[in-house]
């Protein structure tokens, strides 16, 4: 039967590291190799992190003007800005009976597909898992757990409406009461 190697002895040897052998250990080829590898991989991680913040961001500005409020008559969902900016401009009195214009982000709140606006059915319908939203953005069918998100909308100084996609307003958090999330519909 093979004897068990005396483990206790090794521990004693490890405990007896003096200054001289520590320096020697630092120049051990294996330690050097693993040290270099560790440093290199750290540099790679840092470089990757830097890569996530490009010097130049080729994206359209998050705030843009969409013309006067009169372009958006009551009861309409405008898909004019969908392709370029990913928002629907909605003018409706179907949310708490108030006449409002607001901009809905075209991102399904279930898993992020782009729903289609179905004019005939008066609903937004997601082609990925079948979530459906009323014209005002409130979810009612399929798995989407919460309403579509509004983005900022305000009346600019020149009388045009201005969308600000850098801010989001979530209905379930009570943020749709925020006056930056809509414009009075009687302006149209």
């Amino acid at each position: 039967m093979p004897l068990k190697p005396p483990a206790a002895k090794d521990k004693k040897a490890a405990a007896g590291v003096d200054r001289r052998s520590f320096v020697a250990l630092c120049f051990d080829p294996l330690v050097l190799a693993f040290g270099f590898m560790a440093v290199t991989s750290q540099v790679w991680v840092l470089a990757l992190a830097r890569f996530m913040f490009p010097n130049v961001l080729v994206e359209p500005p998050t705030a843009f003007k969409i013309g006067p409020a009169s372009d958006y008559p009551l009861g309409g969902v405008s898909t004019k800005w969908l392709a370029a900016r990913g928002v629907w401009i909605v003018h409706t009195d179907q949310y708490k009976g108030r006449n409002l214009i607001y901009a809905l982000a075209s991102v399904c709140t279930h898993l992020g597909c782009t729903p289609n606006w179905l004019e005939g059915e008066q609903k937004y319908k997601c082609p990925c898992h079948g979530s459906g939203f009323y014209v005002n953005g409130i979810n009612f069918e399929g798995p989407a757990p919460r309403p579509l998100e509004r983005v900022g909308l305000k009346l600019a100084a020149d009388g045009q409406l201005e969308v600000d996609k850098s801010v989001k307003f979530q209905e379930e958090m009570g943020q749709w009461e925020d006056s930056n999330s809509f414009v009075d519909g009687s302006l149209a």
Partner: peptide
């Protein structure tokens, strides 16, 4: 295109079980 999702949008066939599951449960 980020703003045009094919209708219907289907996962690869081997993930369709997961996609069906997503209809009933949260992501």
């Amino acid at each position: 295109s980020a703003v045009k999702t094919p209708n219907p949008s289907k996962a690869p066939w081997y993930f369709l079980g997961l996609q069906e599951m997503l209809v009933y449960y949260d992501p």
